[in-house]
Amino acid sequence: MTKTLLACLLAACAATASAAEAPAMVQHDHGAMMHSPSRSWTQLPLLKSRMKGQDMASRSIIMQPQNIAADAVEAWSNDLEDANGHRQLPMEMGGAPLDKPATGGFQMLTAREVQGDGVRIASTVHYFGERGGKNPTAMFDQVKHELEIIPQPYPREHSRYRANEDWQFAVRFKGQPLAGQQVVLETSNGSRAEFLTDALGVVKVKVPNDFKAEAAQRENHGMRRGADFVLAVSHAEGGLQYLTAFNSGYGEDAYANRSLAMGMGFMLVGMLGAAPLLRNRKTAARKEESANA
């Protein structure tokens, strides 16, 4: 029995391999899939991550501040008790290397620039693609800078922000919520919007559906091509002008490259296939008798 099954498996695999589309890359480049090409689409401070290496074992992350002059990048881990719970990543040629700590999971990264009476902060979140040991809520709750935009919550593991979805962010100053604060959204696709925080300092942001129809939609490993957005807020206090920004990538609408109509159609085909099972044999027999009579 076991040998028969193994033989069937090998045959099926061989048939599938030969019938399959052109084999995908053994090592697919997540970096290219997750992020749009770098371009100066905003003047707001950004903190971008670039992946180097083509497989999980050799992959390294480089954090690149853009529109901000930072000496270092700070990293907070989803496990604040860990030795790497909070660390300074020195800037090198091309950016600040971020190595994956043992806890994996989420990392919050910030870059800070102080010039005169202005303080600029760029922040982002990086997910290492492995299950982290802990929920990142404590990492987000940790006060890192005076003015902050904190995702509440961040998209869960193996998910991302997507067009047409509503996401909440908290704006706080020195750990306290900032109510009635204007928050600006800009995207690399050219959209711009403004929001106001509510009494609890929370703003609900609808990610715009601003992807233009493209001739070639590349879908690889369930990930679609994406764009970048940045949320920014400014606040003046104590003679200092603070500007903080949170940037991340986002993807197309959940139903892009999906068809609900086709899905329901195939479901109905399946339902019709099972319909004969519901037929009462006695009713069928009686009908046959009356037809013959």
Binding site: E21, E219, Y255, R258, L260, M262, M264, M267, G270, A274
Partner: peptide, 21 residues
């Protein structure tokens, strides 16, 4: 909603939806 991006995803999705129905 069935994925329409690639033939393989479409085939698997169609099969899954039909099986569900």
């Amino acid at each position: 909603a069935v994925r329409t991006g690639t033939n393989i995803n479409f085939f698997l999705g169609a099969l899954g939806n039909a099986l569900f129905g």
